[in-house]
Amino acid sequence: MKAIGFKQSLPITKEDSFIAFETEVPKPEGRDLLVKVQANSVNPVDYKIRQNAVKDQVLDTPKIIGWDAVGIVEAVGAEVALFNVGDAVFYAGDLTRSGSNAEYQLVDERIVGRKPKNLSIAEAAAIPLTGLTAYETLFDRFKYNPATDKGKSLLILAGAGGVGSIAIQLAKKLTDLTVIATASREETQDWCKQMGADYVVDHYELKDQLAAEGFEQVDFIFDCVDLKSYWETAAELIKPQGHIVSITGSSEPLNLNLLKNKSVTFSWELMYTRSMHQTEDMQRQHDILNHLAQLLEDGTLQTTLTTTFEGFSVENLKEAHKLQESGKSIGKNVIVF
């Protein structure tokens, strides 16, 4: 089968930052599905791993990355119970395994959902990673409770990105939260409003614009962009007994003492935790993806696809990574095989 990977972490402009090669089609065992990949999408995690995974060596065999995929089940392991050969599926994969930048991929059925019937393969490929991340943030980290959280405020930092785009929709459609998103450019502000945000504020003037809209503090903050840069501001803006969730990490230790006097809760969200650690509730991702498929089919949610690259090639993968690295990507970018 054809696959695209890298032997060394190089700038995307370098010729060998990605290379195409041939490798054997893997065989499914246990609860694995063998999926013939039809489309996948490129996320910030892709370029961050490409930039950092192989810095001090040159691999003999190229590393295959890629998370988010849509495809058809070609074969199943002996213990598979949730899917059959021929099923159309979508998923975000597992950081510890070979990725979706290949014609075939093995993936554990417990982190796979059925593809939404009404979406094209490109539209569906835009959803899994960001949809899971946003859903887990709202319901597994914030633990949104309609009885106690109705009318509370949620600030999403970077509302026009892949995660922010679907988080706005989920919060507006599945909760009673007031949703505030940050965006600085006219086109990103318009996108956030299209996704359903109640308010859109410029992150360069965050505190002043929040205050102008009547929010001196907020109940929930969801960081999708840069926790280190926003940490002190988030600690100031969060209400007493509020909750902050971040997906971005920090290159330096965080001063948690800033949250102490307000008894603020802080949580990380990593969509890969369940698959990486084979948690007891790993199959929740299967259930979430199926719920997302239902919400997409009944029109509650819309795809966040904005850019489609036609053809599984080194050139298209490089262009998708360049777009992600630019920091100007809106919504999701998908490669159709």
Rank of each mutant, 00 (worst) to 15 (best):
G159A: 05
A183P: 05
A125P: 00
S120P: 06
F215E: 07
E236R: 10
S313C: 10
L323R: 13
L301W: 02
V225F: 13
A211H: 08
L119I: 04
D176C: 09
A125S: 01
R284G: 10
A53I: 10
G311H: 00
D226Y: 12
I166H: 03
N255F: 09
D60R: 12
K36P: 02
A88R: 15
V35A: 11
V201H: 01
A92L: 12
V25A: 11
G5D: 04
Q194T: 13
I238V: 12
P146N: 13
A39V: 01
L305W: 04
Y204Q: 15
K14V: 08
V42Q: 05
T265G: 14
H243K: 09
S17V: 04
K2M: 10
F222S: 04
H203A: 02
Q302F: 01
K36A: 14
W67E: 02
R284H: 15
I111Y: 05
A212M: 13
K207F: 12
D190N: 10
A160Y: 00
A53K: 07
T307E: 13
T61F: 09
G86E: 11
F139H: 08
G86K: 09
T137M: 08
T265P: 10
E216T: 15
K228C: 15
S275K: 07
F139N: 07
E252R: 14
E187K: 12
A102K: 03
S100F: 06
D149W: 11
S263D: 08
H286G: 11
V163P: 01
G196Y: 00
I12R: 04
F142L: 07
F18R: 01
D32I: 02
S120M: 08
G93K: 01
Q285T: 06
S100I: 03
S329N: 14
E123Q: 02
Q324I: 08
G30W: 06
I244M: 06
L34S: 05
T308R: 04
I166M: 02
N52K: 13
K172Y: 01
L10I: 11
D226R: 06
R284N: 12
K117S: 14
E136R: 14
K2Y: 03
E205F: 15
E252P: 13
L317T: 01
D298C: 07
G93N: 08
L132C: 10
D56Q: 12
